[in-house]
Write a protein that binds this DNA or RNA. Structure first.
Length: 693
RNA sequence: GGCGGGGUAGCUCAGGUGGUUAGAGCGUUGGAUUCAUAACCCAAAGGUCGAGAGUUCAACUCUCUCCCCCGCUACCA
C-alpha cells in the first residue's frame, strides 16, 4: 500500500434476481463503486469493474411461484432488467455477468473441489425438515405455519411477512410444507461445513490489526464483533433444487450454498471478461475493493476471505467500504412491500435525469449511518444545487460569451489578484477531491466538486463583467475577456472533475466546449480551452423539476402505504369493536386456540444443561409419552425441587434444539414484572396428560 | 440478553490526542445585484453536541448508568 497498486479490481455486490434495482442499491453500492471506478479510469489506472446477477438461492424460486412462471424465467427477466437499467443509468461495469453462466458453475465447482480435496471441510449430518410427499428437503421459506407473534396462518419459516418477525421453522405453529401441505418430518442429511473458527486468528490479525485504520468503523466494528463472538462452521452446501450442483458423486439434490458461490461470481465474471484474469486475482500488486451494503459485511469480510485464504493464491480485499442503508420517506425500503423508488421506473418517469438521482444519492449517501431519501429533499437539492449553482454558473458563462464574444473563447489578458486566487483554488480542487475519493468519502468529494462551481459564481459576482460591459465595452474589453476566459476554464474543470459524479452532465459540458475525452491529469489546469474555441450553447444542463412531478411520486408512495394499511386493518381488525376489553395481542378465534395442545405433565427428572446458566433439561411424563424439554428456568428453580412436580406443557410446539438438546415442547410459566418466572401448575394433582383448556 | 454502528442547528450530515465565540450544504430571514433557470453574491437568526452522574482547572470530546434508532447475535420458547 505504500506504493501505488499496479491494477485495481473493483467489485459491486451482485444484485439478487428477485426484484428490481432500487435507490437503496444505488446509494449503497453502485453509485459509489461507479464514482470510484470512473475516477480511477480518469487517473489512467488499470482497472476492471465487475458485477453480475446473483440468480440462485431460495427467494427466486419463491418469486417464480408467486408469479406463476419458471425460475429460469424469473432470473432471465431480472437479469436483463438489471443490465438495461444499469447501462441506462451510466453504471460502467466492464462486465455484467450472471451466476447461471456455465463459466461460473465451473469456477464455483472447481473452488469447492479444491477445498474438498484439501480436506478443509467438515462433514456433518443433521436433522432437516423434509416433505415426505414431495420427497425433498425444505428450506426455511418453504415451511409455512402460524406465526407465533401475530397468528398469521401463512407465515414462512424464516419470517412472517405480516408482522415482519424473523422466525425459524420450529417456531411456527402447525408447520406444513409449502409444496404439499404435509406436516414436515425431520430427516438426517449430510452437508459440508467450512470451519470458520480455524480462520479466526488469521482474520483477526488481518482485519483487526491490519486494517484498524483504513477500514470504515462500521465495517471494522461488525467484523470484530463476529470474530470475538466466536466463528462457527458454516454449511457450504444445501439441500435445494435450484443452484449449482455440489461437484461430488451421488449427491442429487445438493447444491452449493449461495453465499459460497455468489462471491466466486466476481472471479468468474473476471474470467469471462479477460483471459488475463489471474493477474487481477492472484497478483499481489492488485488492489481489490468490494463495494457492498452493510447486510453483506460478514460474507465479504469473513466468509469469502476465509475461502480465498483456504484456496490460496488469491488476493484479499484491500478494503470493503460497506455503506449503511437508505430509507425512503422515513420507512425502510422493502422489495416485498413495494416500498422503494425503482430504478427502471425512475428512468422512465424522469428521462435524461440520471445525474439528478446520482447527485441526490451521492450527496446523501449513507456512508456512516442510515439515511433517509425524501422526494422533497430530492426536489430542493436538484433545484437549488444542480440547477441553481452548477447549471446556472455554466449557463451564465456561456450566455455572456455568446453576447460579448460571439460564442468564441476570448483570450486571457493581464491577471489580477482575484483571478489568481480563483486559479489557485481550481488548482487545489483535484487533489482534495481525489483524496476524499481514495478514502471512499463520496459525499465530501461531491461537496468539494460543488465548491468549484460555487467559487465560479462568486468570481462572476465579484467581477460583474456585465457592469464593465455597460461602462464601456471597448475600454473594458480586455478585462471582460480575461474574466470570461478564466470562467470558461473553470467550466472545463467542472467537466473534468465532474466525470465521476455526473457523467452525463460532464459529457454535455465537453460538447459545449468542444473538449474530447478528459483525464484527471487535466484537472486543475486553466489552459484547457484555447482562445478562439467556439462555445456551443446546447441549452440548459438542468431544467427545473416541476413540483407536480414530485407530488406525483409522493402520491404514488402514499397510495402504496394506504393500500397496505387497509389490507392490514381488514385482516386483523373486525373482531375488536364496541368492547372495552384491552387486548395486548390481536384477537384470535377459538379455532386458533384449539390448535394449541396444553397438558399437565409430571417432572420425572431434571438437570442443569451443561454450559448454560439459564437452561434446565427436564424429562416429563406427559401421559402419552416421556419426553425431553429444555426450559429457561434454571435461575428460578433448582433441579432437585422440580422432580415430582406437575407443570403445564405446550405439547405440540415444534421441536427445537437448544444447546444441542432437542426440546419437545415448552413449559408454561408466569413472568412477573421483575422478570421472575413461576411455574404454572394445577392446584391439585391430576393425571399426567390431562388436557388444559 | 450480548455485541457493533449511530443519536450534533428546521432538514441531511462534518468534526474533535478534552482547552478561546461548535462547523458545512440545503431551508428560513434581511440586504445587494440583474449576465443567468426569481437563479447568483453578502449577511443574520437558529444548537443546553440523546438524558443523567462522575473524572478534570476545563468535556460536546474521557468514564459509568440510562433512553431511542439501525444491524448482527444468543442459553426467549
Amino acid at each position: 500500500m505504500t506504493q501505488e497498486p499496479k491494477r485495481y479490481l473493483i467489485t459491486a455486490a451482485l444484485p439478487y434476481a428477485n426484484g428490481p434495482i432500487h435507490i437503496g442499491h444505488l446509494a449503497g453500492v453502485y453509485i459509489p463503486a461507479d464514482i470510484y471506478v470512473r475516477y480511477l479510469r480518469a487517473m489512467g489506472r488499470d482497472v476492471k469493474f465487475v458485477c453480475g446477477s446473483d440468480e440462485h438461492g431460495v427467494p427466486v424460486t419463491i418469486r417464480a411461484e408467486q408469479e406463476g412462471i419458471t425460475v429460469q424465467e424469473v432470473v432471465d427477466k431480472y437479469h436483463s432488467m438489471f443490465e438495461n437499467s444499469f447501462r441506462e443509468f451510466g453504471i460502467t461495469f466492464d462486465i455484467y455477468a450472471r451466476t447461471s453462466n456455465p463459466i461460473h458453475h465451473e469456477t464455483a465447482q472447481d473452488f469447492f473441489k479444491n477445498l474438498y480435496e484439501k480436506g478443509l471441510f467438515e462433514e456433518k449430518t443433521e436433522e432437516q425438515y423434509y416433505d415426505e410427499v414431495k420427497e425433498r428437503f425444505l428450506q426455511d421459506r418453504y415451511i409455512r405455519g402460524t406465526c407465533p407473534n401475530c397468528s398469521n396462518p401463512d407465515a414462512q419459516g424464516d419470517q412472517c411477512e405480516k408482522c415482519g418477525t424473523a422466525l425459524s421453522p420450529n417456531e411456527l405453529i402447525n408447520p406444513r410444507s409449502a409444496y404439499s401441505d404435509a406436516t414436515p418430518t425431520l430427516r438426517p442429511t449430510k452437508n459440508w461445513y467450512l470451519p470458520l473458527q480455524n480462520y479466526a486468528e488469521w482474520l483477526r490479525q488481518w482485519i483487526v490489526e491490519g486494517h484498524a485504520s483504513d477500514w470504515k468503523t462500521n465495517v471494522l466494528g461488525q467484523c470484530k464483533s463476529w470474530i470475538e463472538d466466536g466463528l462457527r462452521p458454516r454449511a457450504m452446501t444445501r439441500d435445494l433444487d435450484w443452484g449449482i450442483d455440489v461437484p461430488l458423486e451421488g449427491l442429487a439434490g445438493k447444491k452449493l450454498y449461495v453465499w459460497f458461490e455468489a462471491p466466486i461470481g466476481y472471479i468468474s465474471a473476471t474470467k469471462e471478461l479477460t483471459s488475463d484474469w489471474e493477474k487481477y486475482w492472484k497478483s499481489q500488486d492488485t488492489k481489490l475493493v468490494h463495494f457492498i451494503g452493510k447486510d453483506n459485511i460478514v460474507f465479504h469480510c469473513i466468509i469469502f476471505p476465509a475461502m480465498l485464504k483456504a484456496y490460496g493464491d488469491f488476493v484479499l480485499p484491500e478494503n470493503v467500504p460497506a455503506n449503511e442503508f437508505m430509507n425512503l420517506e422515513g420507512d425502510k425500503i422493502s422489495t416485498s412491500r413495494n416500498w422503494a423508488v425503482w430504478l427502471h421506473e425512475y428512468l422512465q418517469e424522469f428521462p435524461e435525469k440520471q445525474d439528478a438521482l446520482r447527485y441526490a444519492l451521492t450527496a446523501n449517501m449513507p456512508e456512516t449511518k442510515d439515511n433517509d431519501f425524501t422526494w422533497a429533499d430530492f426536489y430542493t437539492k436538484y433545484n437549488s444545487e444542480l440547477v441553481g449553482i452548477l447549471g446556472n454558473f455554466i449557463n451564465r458563462v456561456v450566455v455572456l460569451t455568446e453576447k460579448y464574444f460571439e460564442g468564441k473563447t476570448p483570450s486571457v489578458g493581464k491577471l489580477q489578484e482575484i483571478d489568481q486566487a480563483l486559479i489557485n483554488a481550481v488548482a487545489e480542487a483535484p487533489a482534495k477531491i481525489a483524496q476524499s475519493l481514495e478514502q471512499y468519502r463520496f459525499r465530501e468529494a461531491l461537496a468539494y466538486y460543488m465548491d468549484v462551481a460555487r467559487a465560479g459564481n462568486k468570481y462572476m459576482q465579484d467581477n460583474a463583467p456585465w457592469s464593465l460591459y455597460k461602462a464601456g465595452f471597448e475600454e473594458n474589453k480586455e478585462r471582460i475577456a480575461t474574466i470570461l476566459h478564466i470562467s470558461l476554464q473553470l467550466v472545463a474543470n467542472l467537466a473534468v472533475l465532474g466525470e465521476p459524479f455526473l457523467p452525463f452532465t460532464a459529457g454535455k459540458i465537453r460538447t459545449m466546449l468542444g473538449l474530447g475525452n478528459t483525464t484527471w491529469a487535466q484537472a486543475g489546469k486553466t489552459d484547457l480551452i484555447a482562445a478562439g474555441q467556439t462555445i456551443q450553447n446546447t441549452g440548459l444542463l438542468f431544467e427545473k423539476i416541476e413540483e407536480a412531478s414530485i407530488e406525483a411520486q409522493v402520491g404514488k408512495l402514499e397510495a402504496i402505504k394506504k393500500a397496505r394499511e387497509e389490507k392490514e386493518n381488514a385482516t386483523q381488525k373486525p373482531e375488536v369493536e364496541s368492547t372495552s376489553i384491552v387486548n395486548h395481542k390481536s384477537s384470535i378465534e377459538y379455532t386458533d386456540f384449539e390448535k394449541i395442545d396444553i397438558r399437565v405433565a409430571t417432572v420425572l427428572a431434571a438437570e442443569k444443561v451443561k454450559g448454560a446458566d439459564k437452561l434446565l433439561q427436564l424429562t416429563l411424563d406427559t401421559g402419552i409419552d416421556t419426553r425431553t424439554v429444555v426450559s429457561g428456568i434454571a435461575l428460578h428453580y433448582a433441579p432437585e425441587d422440580l422432580v415430582g412436580r406437575q407443570v403445564c406443557l405446550l405439547a405440540n410446539l415444534a421441536p427445537r434444539k437448544l444447546r444441542g438438546i432437542m426440546s419437545q415442547g415448552m413449559i408454561l410459566t408466569a413472568e412477573e414484572p421483575d422478570g421472575k418466572l413461576r411455574l404454572i401448575a394445577p392446584h391439585e394433582v391430576v393425571v399426567s396428560g390431562s388436557v388444559v383448556k
